[in-house]
Design a protein around this nucleic acid. Structure first.
Lengths: 344, 344
DNA sequence: TCCGAAAAATGAAACGTTACAAATAGTGAG
DNA sequence: CTCACTATTTGTAACGTTTCATTTTTCGGA
C-alpha cells in the first residue's frame, strides 16, 4: 500500500502551499472561495485524512479525555460513561474508556497510557491503591476528577454520599424488623466498599444495636460470581446466627446473592431480604425485583466531565470542588416482607 | 505550568544525546549499564513521560485498535469488548471503544475519528448505513473486521449464525404449541434484525405455517424502552389475534416486553411466552428467567481481535475469512409452558 | 605501545501539522 | 497611474520521537 496521503500531496495537486491547505482545514473563511474549492476537490480526489498524531504533537495535547472505571461490564459504569461521553463530545473531545477491573496493576498501566497520550484530563474511579500516582499526574498539570469517590479539599470529585447510602439500606432493613444483618462487599481497598460499610454501622448504632449484629462477608470483587460465593458462605452459618437481611455493596453482588439463595431454596424476601446498591436497570427486572440504593448514574458522568472540561479549558470560574449527590432508597419486593422481631 | 519535559531535557541532564535516551527507552540492552543508569535517574528525577503522539507520528501508525459497537450499555457488547480488549492488550494494543448508539451519523463520526488517529484496525458492528465508508477505509489499508455480522467473501468477519438463531427460537415456540407468533425487532437496517427475522420465517415454513402466522412488531432500537412500547402495541390487537409466543431481537427488548406484559397483568409464560436473544447474564436473573439464544460473546470479541491483529501485523498466514459461530437455544421459564394447540 | 574490532554514543534527518511573520496580489481613492 | 491598504498566500520553524549512517571509545592481543 502506498504511503498515506499528506497535506503536502493535497497542496501540490491543488497548486497551493501546505499552509493554505491547513488554512482551508482550520479557518476556511480566510481563504479565497476559488482556492478553497480547488483544495477541497484535491482532498476528496486523493482521499486525504488528517493525521491526528501530527496535530496533537503540534498542539502539545490531545483531544481525548480518559475514563478509568472499575468494571465495564457493570451497567452502573456504562451509564456513567455515557454521561461523560455526552458531555465530552459536546466539547469536541473523545473518551478513552479504560477498564481497570479493580486491579491496581491494570489501573496503573492505563494511567501511564493516558498520560503518554497527553489526554486533556482523567476521570477515574480509583481502586484505591495508587493515590500518589494520581497526585503525580495532577502535578504534571493534567486535571484529574474522581468519580463516585469523595476527594479531599482542593481536589475535584463527583460522588454520591456512600455513607448515607449504607445508612439508608440498613435503616430500612431494621425498619422491616430484621435484627441479624449482613454486609456483603469487598475488596475493602475500594472506598465505596468502606463507606457503605461505615454507613451501615451508623444505622446500626442509631437503631440501638452494636456492630456484632452485622456479619461482614468479605468478597474478592463486586460482581455476580462473588455474590454467589458469599451467599453460599452465609448459608454455612448455624441457622440461629444466619442473617435475615443482607445488604450488598452493589447490584451485581446482590443479583449473585439472590440467584444462589434461590437455587438453594432460601426464599427471598421471606427467609432473607436483600438490598442492593446502584439501582441498575436490571435490578427492577430481577427474578425478585431488587430493592436498591439509587445513584444518579448518567448525571454523575456528566457532572464529572463538566468539572474536568472546565478545569482543562482553564475556565476562569473553575474552582476545585467536591460535588456530592444524594442517594435514594428504592424499595422493591426483595426487602418488602416485614419480619416479626424475635421470631425465626 | 512549565513546558512538559521532553527527551531533550533528559538527555542534557544525563549528559548524553537524545538518541541515547531513545535507545535506553527502546533497546536498553545496546546501551552501557552506567549510561543507562544515569539516563534512568534523569528520567525519574524529571518525571519524564514519553509523548505517544510523537512516537506515533514517527511510526506512521498508532497502537490503538478501534471498536465501534451499537450500544455500550448492552451487556452483550461490553462482553464482546472485554474479549477484544484481552487479546489486544496481549499484543500491546489499546482499544478505543466507540458507541454508535445505532445511529449512522455517530458511526460515521467515529470512523472518521479512528481513521484520523491512524488506528491499526477497526472492529465494527455496523449500523448498516455506511458500507461504502467501510470499503473506503479498507482501501486506504486499514483492516476492518465485522463483528456479529457476516461479511462477503474477501472480507473478514466474526459472527454467529443469526438465521439459525432465529430459526431455533421460533421452532422452539412452535414446539411448545404456539401458533400465533410475533417478532419484535428493529430497525431493519441492522443485519442482525433482518437475519433473525429470516430465520424465524424459515422455521415457520418448516413447521408448515405461512408468514401470516408471524406478526412483525417493528421498533426503533434494540433496547428496554422499545420493548416496553412493543408489548403495549401487541396488547392493542384483538384478543383472538394476539400472539401467544413472542421472539425478541435481543434480550434488552425481551426484558422490556416482559416488564410491560407483567405490568399489564399478562402472565408469562402462561398467557404469553417470550424468547430473547444474546443470553446476557441478566437474562437468567430476570423476574421470569428468560429463554434466549446464546451467543459466545467474549469469544466473539477475542476472535475478531485475533483476526484483526493477524491482518494488521501482516501475518503471512492471514487470509480473509468469515468465522461463524453457532448459536444455542437456552430454554428457561419464560417459554416453558406447553400450549394446547387450538386452545385459547 | 599500537592496531583492529567490537561496543557505545551521536548528529541530523525525517514524520505531518500549524502558527507566524513576511511576501504578494488585488482594489479603490486621489 | 500611484499609493496605501486590505485580502490572500507562502516559507519556515517548530512540536518530540526514532532511525541510521557515522563517529568515538574501549579493550584484548600482539
Amino acid at each position: 500500500m502506498a504511503r498515506a496521503v499528506s497535506i503536502k500531496d493535497v497542496a501540490s495537486r491543488a497548486g497551493v502551499s501546505t499552509a493554505t491547505v491547513s488554512n482551508v482545514l482550520n479557518r476556511p473563511d480566510i481563504v479565497a472561495a476559488a482556492t478553497r474549492g480547488r483544495v477541497n476537490a484535491a482532498i476528496t480526489a486523493l482521499g486525504f485524512v488528517r493525521n491526528e498524531s501530527a496535530r496533537q504533537l503540534r498542539a502539545g495535547r490531545s483531544r481525548f479525555i480518559g475514563l478509568v472505571v472499575l468494571d465495564v461490564t457493570n451497567p452502573f459504569f456504562t451509564d456513567v460513561a455515557r454521561g461523560a461521553e455526552d458531555l465530552a463530545s459536546e466539547s469536541g473531545l473523545a473518551v478513552i474508556l479504560c477498564n481497570s477491573d479493580e486491579q491496581p496493576t491494570r489501573e496503573r498501566r492505563y494511567l501511564d497510557l493516558l498520560e503518554e497520550h497527553r489526554v486533556r484530563g482523567i476521570l477515574v474511579t480509583p481502586t484505591g491503591d495508587n493515590p500518589e500516582r494520581l497526585e503525580e499526574i495532577r502535578r504534571r498539570g493534567i486535571p484529574v476528577v474522581l468519580v463516585d469517590r469523595h476527594a479531599p479539599r482542593g481536589r475535584c470529585s463527583v460522588s454520591v454520599d456512600d455513607v448515607l447510602g449504607g445508612n439508608l439500606a440498613i435503616a430500612h432493613l431494621l425498619d422491616m424488623g430484621h435484627v441479624r444483618l449482613a454486609y456483603v462487599g469487598g475488596p475493602f481497598t475500594l472506598g465505596q466498599v468502606r463507606d457503605r460499610h461505615e454507613g451501615a454501622l451508623q444505622a446500626l448504632k442509631h437503631g440501638g444495636l452494636d456492630s456484632s449484629a452485622l456479619h461482614v462477608e468479605k468478597i474478592a470483587g463486586l460482581n455476580v460470581a462473588s455474590g454467589q460465593e458469599a451467599a453460599a458462605a452465609l448459608l454455612t452459618l448455624p441457622v440461629g446466627q444466619r442473617p435475615t437481611g443482607v445488604f450488598c455493596a452493589n447490584d451485581l453482588v446482590a443479583l449473585g446473592v439472590l440467584q444462589e439463595l434461590t437455587r438453594l431454596r432460601v426464599a427471598v424476601p421471606e427467609d432473607c431480604a436483600i438490598v442492593g446498591y446502584d439501582d441498575i436497570d436490571f435490578a427492577a427486572a430481577a427474578a425478585v425485583p431488587l430493592s436498591s440504593v439509587r445513584q444518579p448514574r448518567v448525571q454523575l458522568g456528566r457532572a464529572a466531565a463538566e468539572l474536568l472540561i472546565e478545569e482543562a479549558t482553564g475556565s476562569p470560574n473553575h474552582t476545585h470542588r467536591q460535588v456530592v449527590f444524594e442517594p435514594e432508597l428504592v424499595v422493591r419486593q426483595s426487602s418488602s416482607m416485614t419480619r416479626r422481631t424475635g421470631a425465626d
